[in-house]
Design a protein around this nucleic acid. Structure first.
Lengths: 133, 133
DNA sequence: TATAATAACAGTAATCATTACTGATTTTTT
DNA sequence: AAAAAATCAGTAATGATTACTGTTATTATA
C-alpha cells in the first residue's frame, strides 16, 4: 500500500517537527484542528501510526503514563517523565554509557535481546521550583 | 482505611506467590475462579491494586505490552519481554551494573531523578527454538 | 456471644485511549 | 478527463481498567 500525499498528514508531521515536548495524539489533534477544523481524531491516530510505521516519527508507550507520546526525533535517546506534571523531556546520556547495556544483559540470559526501553521518573525543574514557593 | 482480611485477597496473593511468570489480572482471575467460582474481575483488580499500594506485590506497566503484569517479587530486578509470545521473564543483571544509572543520568539533567524503568525486548528461548524447526 | 460498624464482595455500568468501519472526498495514474 | 485507489470525517466498537450499588463477610464492641 503506497503512501499517498495528504494535507492532513503533512500538517501533523510539520506540527510534530516544531515540538520538543513529545505531544499526545489528542494535543496534536487540537493543534492541527486550528488549520483543519474538520479533521477527525481517528485521522490523527491513523496518520501517526502510519508515520511511525514508516520510521518517520517515533511512538513512545511509557507504562508510567498510559498515553502514547509522539516524537519527530527518531534517533535513539532517553527520556525523563515528571510524575508531577507528566511532562516528557529528553535526557542526554553519555553516548557509550549504555551502548553495552544489551550485551551485558545478554550474558545472563538465554534468549535473544534486540533492544531495551529505559526512561527515568521524578520531578522536573519547573515542578521543583513551584514546590519550593 | 485499614485492610480487613478477605479469602479472595488471600487466594490472589497465594496464587501470585506460586508463579514466576508475572500473570495478568485476567489470568489471575481465571485461576482464582476455580476456587471461588463467583469471584468478580473487579474484585481481582481492586485487590491487586490494594496489595501493590501496600507494597506486598509489584505492578508492572510495560508500554510494549499495554496490559499490566503482577509480581510477588517486590525486590528491584529487571525483565525481558518476548515480542513473539509476550512472556515476561526475570532478567538477572550484575548487582551494581546499574546502581549508578540514576546518578549518571542526573549529571546532564536539572530535575530530580527518583527512579528508572528498564526492560529488554527480543525473542525468548522457546520462540527461538520453535522458529528453528 | 450477640450486635453494631465497616471493609469487601459480586455484578454491572462507565471510562478512556485507541482502533475499526463506512460512504464520501482527494490524490494520483492512465 | 476519467478511472483507480488511498485518505478522509464521522461514528461505532474495542479492551483494559475503574467506579458504582445493594448485599455479604469480617472485625470490634458491648
Amino acid at each position: 500500500m503506497t503512501m499517498k500525499y495528504s494535507r492532513q498528514r503533512a500538517a501533523i508531521l510539520s506540527y510534530l517537527q516544531s515540538r520538543k515536548d513529545h505531544p499526545t495524539a489528542e494535543s496534536i489533534y487540537l493543534s492541527v484542528k486550528e488549520e483543519f477544523p474538520n479533521i477527525s481524531l481517528g485521522t490523527v491516530y491513523r496518520n501517526l501510526n502510519q508515520l511511525a510505521e514508516a520510521g518517520m516519527i517515533a511512538k513512545h508507550s511509557f507504562g508510567a503514563l498510559g498515553i502514547d507520546r509522539f516524537d519527530y526525533n527518531t534517533s535513539p535517546h532517553y527520556h525523563f517523565i515528571c510524575n508531577c506534571c507528566n511532562a516528557v523531556i529528553d535526557l542526554p546520556l553519555e553516548n557509550d554509557a549504555f551502548s553495552v547495556i544489551d550485551v551485558q544483559a545478554s550474558e545472563g540470559f538465554d534468549g535473544l535481546i534486540r533492544e531495551h526501553c529505559l526512561y527515568f521518573c521524578g520531578m522536573c525543574k519547573n515542578c521543583l521550583n513551584r514546590q519550593a514557593e
